[in-house]
Design a protein around this nucleic acid. Structure first.
Lengths: 101, 101
DNA sequence: ACATCAATTCGATGGTTGTCGAAATATCGA
DNA sequence: TCGATATTTCGACAACCATCGAATTGATGT
């Protein structure tokens, strides 16, 4: 049978707003989009090739994204790899649908 | 056949961020939720019965919500009635799903 | 006309946030 | 150990935003 990663995730009240905020900045949205398109673990430095942004600002945004739960990070030597957490996004969408639709 | 209001709505780049911002404030989220629960057209004054907020602040938030397209307003004498625009919310959810999931 | 009520606009204030350069930290290869 | 590279932290600044009281606009009923 197909495993669809269907584990149900609960979104806290805090997280609800953190996610909305995370999605409300154009650069974070772009980062998130690029991260989803990527096939392989993506370090900060690779992001900076395609998005015109200072290292400090990127680091700031990645922290916001991680705080929201939309991405997860893993340290790998001097690199940090980021992984989109699509199940969190899905839980967010479900929550909006339930609350507002 | 069931009519499901399936008209496709396009979300502009601007609107995408306006909606995310609109959803990122706890009071606006609450307003939106209450508006959806309501059966009848809801004026500002009714909102203020259930949400502790000044008239000025409420007016400000309603403007933001309307700018995002998530609600529509209709003037009725000295009242202003608000209507949630669920098809816009649905379009937003679809867009997030397409872009990020 | 007038008083009343709903809603908006104005002006000010305090807090938040995006931005970046510079400095610091951490890892790697030579 | 040393120099180069990746990332974070710090400090500062400007722009934005939520908030409210006061003044204003607009509609209603008397």
């Amino acid at each position: 049978m197909a495993v669809t990663n269907a584990k149900h995730v609960e979104i806290t009240e805090d997280q609800l707003l953190l996610i909305a905020k995370a999605l409300a900045d154009p650069r974070r949205y772009e980062i998130l989009k690029k991260l989803g398109e990527q096939r392989c673990p993506t370090p900060c430095s690779t992001m900076r090739d395609s998005i015109d942004i200072s290292a400090a600002t990127l680091s700031h945004h990645m922290k916001e994204l991680e705080a929201s739960g939309l991405v997860r990070s893993e340290k790998d030597g001097k690199f940090v790899h980021y992984f989109p957490q699509q199940h969190v996004l899905r839980a967010y969408l479900d929550r909006l649908k339930t609350d507002l639709a």
